[in-house]
Design a binder for these strands. Sequence first.
DNA 1: TTTATTAAGTGTACTTAATACATTTAAAAT
DNA 2: ATTTTAAATGTATTAAGTACACTTAATAAA
Lengths: 231, 231
Amino acid sequence: MQNKYSEQTHLLVAVDCIIFGFDNDELKLLLIKRDFEPERGRWSLMGGFLQTDENTDQAASRVLQKLTGLHDVYLEQVSTFSNPNRDPVERTISVAYYALINILDHDKELIKQHSAEWFSLTKLPNLIFDHETMVQMAMHRLRYKASVEPIGFELLPEKFTMRQLQKLYEAIQNQEIDKRNFIKKINNLNVLVKLEEKDMTSSKKGSFLYQFDKEKYDASRFLLNIGTMDS
Amino acid sequence: MQNKYSEQTHLLVAVDCIIFGFDNDELKLLLIKRDFEPERGRWSLMGGFLQTDENTDQAASRVLQKLTGLHDVYLEQVSTFSNPNRDPVERTISVAYYALINILDHDKELIKQHSAEWFSLTKLPNLIFDHETMVQMAMHRLRYKASVEPIGFELLPEKFTMRQLQKLYEAIQNQEIDKRNFIKKINNLNVLVKLEEKDMTSSKKGSFLYQFDKEKYDASRFLLNIGTMDS
DNA sequence: TTTATTAAGTGTACTTAATACATTTAAAAT
DNA sequence: ATTTTAAATGTATTAAGTACACTTAATAAA
């Protein structure tokens, strides 16, 4: 057996993270303002090179932690980008991942260090390289995934109101949902527990808080299909 | 601007192709018997290294053509595999693609040269490295994609019977479908043209041939949802 | 020429899911 | 007490999915 595929071209492999957060009524992305070359001063996704002792899942997780301080974040591989000239410095292929985090739940100091900021998805700045394509593909995957598995909860605090959950799904699917139909559907899924507690910040009456119950979910194993109501 | 990200690790990038075909009643995979190291003599997916002047889509297309002689084949990226030790010779990450081809429609000479063979999906041999995981993920993606876009037709000859189409969807979804409900659903999609011609090989009565009509499809732009009937 | 054989072709009733839509309720503020 | 605000709730209608069995067209055999 040979020792190396020696004659083949070797190149760089990077990961880039599309970091989603949910702030009240809208989906946001965490972007960094590059203080390094190339493209210094422009906005981009947070990324990093694949190291010898890790796979790309681990690299994405490491890169994400570097910016947010968070461990055990929901991450999913989206696609690999490999056009020969996508990085002007040197040929690099990049594996894109999207991450879902609770927007209240990150290390503000680290974010400052990286000159990172949250942008509404509807008001993104221009991004370097092929990062805008990455964002679009990630959004597409998130839509699909959220309609099939209860990953939406990753974007919310542990306790949330029905209203918040609905607003989240409206933001993900980018369409309004009828309140009564939404609650009906969610309740059918049987994956939430209604708490005694109320959130009193949103109204005088207050609204009950709910929690995602993974055990209930694993038990019933329904396929979700949220956000295809109305037209 | 620097000239290189010089201090970073460079490594090999490969593509591997999960090549689907449909033969009467079952889905098949085209595998090669390796006559080279490592893992000489074992079965594996057809693959190849990414070259300097191409992206991974192009590499997959090239690799596929090398084995089948076919151009313009339906190819979709599935996922990138990057465990540090997945290839024992040297660190290599691999981008997996699945391909859909008409099984009657390939160059038998090339296949012989590569000692390639078609295997029923239900009777696959053990595969090298992480290729079995690649196959599983590809199958999963194919199921999803076929339920959402009319890619099934890529696996059939240009003219086909309703029976063949049904058998194909049964194979993809791995479940039986009621004949009448299937036809009802397909007709609702409005993407087929019924020809005058009949296929007389399958019965005495003969069965009408159909053709996929991309223009009809583009015009109506329905979302398909095939194979979720019955239970 | 009749009869048998084979898969193709077809319709309806029932069940479940999706959708549209408006009023009452609880709590706080005045 | 009254007003204000968002939360909470139910029903009727429509569309989609599912279950189910007989007739038809053509060939082959008697």
